[in-house]
Design a protein around this nucleic acid. Sequence first.
DNA 1: GGGATGTGACTTTCGGGTAAGTTACCATGA
DNA 2: TCATGGTAACTTACCCGAAAGTCACATCCC
Lengths: 216, 216
Amino acid sequence: MTGRTPGGRTGTKGVARAEREAQILAVAGEVFAERGAALASVAEIAERAGISKPLIYNYFGSREGLLTACVGHAAEVIVAEIERTAGLGEVGLARALLTLDGMFVLLGDRPWMWRLVNDATLGAVGEAAEVIAPYRSKVDALAHDGVGQLMHLAGDDDEADVSALVAVWTSVFDSLVGWWLDHPGTSPAEMSARCVRLFTAVFGLGAPPEIEGLSG
Amino acid sequence: MTGRTPGGRTGTKGVARAEREAQILAVAGEVFAERGAALASVAEIAERAGISKPLIYNYFGSREGLLTACVGHAAEVIVAEIERTAGLGEVGLARALLTLDGMFVLLGDRPWMWRLVNDATLGAVGEAAEVIAPYRSKVDALAHDGVGQLMHLAGDDDEADVSALVAVWTSVFDSLVGWWLDHPGTSPAEMSARCVRLFTAVFGLGAPPEIEGLSG
DNA sequence: GGGATGTGACTTTCGGGTAAGTTACCATGA
DNA sequence: TCATGGTAACTTACCCGAAAGTCACATCCC
């Protein structure tokens, strides 16, 4: 008697387990990315997926489990793409542009993946942080590799300098992808062309002049 | 009878209103920046400040009011500094380096300010978003100005290209400041010197070669 | 009919916010 | 100098809503 059925139907809808799981994962990825991983509620995910909250717990055990699955899947896909382009044999700016281009193509039909993996609130304690750490390490190592080559060419082998430039490059990459995601309707090819123009313009400027007025 | 005093003393501690307000503002700024604006709880702020939660509501009305005060103050200080260095008359990379240097000096004794103003979770709806929007606009306009000069020199006046490069430059600035905040013990002068080295190394590379294998 | 799929209604926890009362400081009058 | 009362500063103990997580039950397909 407790489980009356006034509004919605209860009982199975004939959706296979694997299919439902993939659907939840996709919807959850979008919501986590849109609201921020720490702020999204599983009630909203359930609503957007057209199912009830307990079903999500039935499939993923906990909110943390769901987030972990989303983040793990997205990170794996993204890192694989970065590794692919890094292994193509190009160096320097050419490698950078190839990596960007590959990412634009990859994210074409799941733009939320990038936002999810780079969510700032993931860094907090929790299972998701542990899941994403190794992927972040891999990406950092690849960036360190590429940036190190460039810096060596420029005659600067200071380890702290390389570390700082890795942070900068990672951030440049993120901002270009972010800008692209914020301007839908631009094809990957167009965006890659834009990146080439920007790189050419910026790197064509030459070294900066002497600066006066700095502290110290 | 209700207001018993089992553990801590109740009643005034003789702290003047202005002093207490400044103390709460400073502690709240740190906590908001550390946990993320959307995730920090006023209970933790109260605990770290050594006072009770209702006192904060007495001073700032609501959590939103407290956050707004923190963000507004921090944004004002930071934007003023950026405007100061932007008005110094330098252009291009020299202006960029001066702005960075000024920011390092400014943030020396309140490093949390940067993280707070650039908190990603501030963008969500709420009073704090409205408070920070005009400051963000100002900074964007200044960056747009500087980047536009550079791009014009390089012969690229495409508005979308400029917009994208503004995003990139903002992000580069943020990553350099962030790296510095993550490596305490480095003086502003040392960090500025590092920035000069990095800029010199990167911009000395020259334009990228032709790339093959891009999409499209 | 039995297992897989699915749900309404519930409990629990946590954090924002409030009501009501307590204590210290300080001015005033004698 | 000392009582006295008013006010500013502060706290305990509570309320309330939102979101995580659970339970018993309902439905469908073979």
